[in-house]
Design a protein around this nucleic acid. Sequence first.
DNA 1: TTCTTGTGCAACCATTCAGTTGCAAGTCAG
DNA 2: CTGACTTGCAACTGAATGGTTGCACAAGAA
Lengths: 119, 119
Amino acid sequence: MTGPDSSDASDSSDVNDSVDAVLGALADPTRRALLDALVARGEASASALAGDLPVSRQAIVKHLGLLTEAGLVSSDRVGREVRYRPRSDTLDATAHWMSALASEWESRLSAIKRAAERD
Amino acid sequence: MTGPDSSDASDSSDVNDSVDAVLGALADPTRRALLDALVARGEASASALAGDLPVSRQAIVKHLGLLTEAGLVSSDRVGREVRYRPRSDTLDATAHWMSALASEWESRLSAIKRAAERD
DNA sequence: TTCTTGTGCAACCATTCAGTTGCAAGTCAG
DNA sequence: CTGACTTGCAACTGAATGGTTGCACAAGAA
C-alpha cells in the first residue's frame, strides 16, 4: 500500500516520488492507450488487453507492472488470471499536484514581474 | 503558437499531442529541477542555469529545447545571451486535461460498477 | 583590436527502455 | 490424467535519451 494520505501541499518528499512515477508512466503513448483500454473495460486481464493493443502480451505485462508501481492500476488475482483495474484516485491526486504547481508558478512569476516593474 | 483552445474532452488530436510533449518533458527529474530553478529566477540564460544544476551547460540547453517544444518555457534573445522564461499557462492547461481525464475515469468506472451490481 | 563570455553545432558514450521470443509452471475443463 | 489457456521469468535486440567533451562563432568589454 502506498498510503496516499492526501492533505495539503506542504510535504514534498512522498508526493514528489509518487508524481515522478505517475508522470513517467503517463509519458508513454502506449501506456496511455493501455489505460484507455483498461478504463473502457473497467477490469481486464493482461491477455485480454493484449488483444486491444498491437503489442505482445509480455509488453502489456511490463506496462501494467509500471502502472501498478505508479499507483495507476491495481491488480488482484481471481483464478488462474489476474484482473487489472484502473485507479482514478492516483490520477486525480497527480492532477491536483500539477494544478497546485501551476498556481505556484503563476504567483511567483507575477511577483517577480511586479518587482521588476517597480524597479 | 499551439492554440490550446481548451473546451471539453471530445477532441483528442491536437491536445493529446501537446499533452504527450508536456508529460514527456515533466517526467524527467532533472527537467523538473531545471524548471524549478527557472521559476525561482523568473528569467535566466542557459549558462546561468547551468550553475544551479550539477550538469553541463549543453545538457541544460538540450533540456530547455525539449521544454520549449513542450510549450513549458519560452525564450527570447537579448544581446549575446538567450533569456528563458517559464510558461505557466501550458502547465495549467495540462493540469486541466489531467483533471478532466480523472473525472472521466471516475464516471466510467462508477457506471461499470453500478451495472455490475445491478446484474 | 584583443580578451572574455555566451551560444550553437556535432560527435560520441552509457544507460534506459519498449518490445520481442522462448520456455517453465500453475489452473481450469474434459 | 490430458489438453487448453494464462501467468511468470529470463535473455536478447534496437532505438531513444541523458549526459559529456570539443570546437567554432557571435557579441559585449577593455
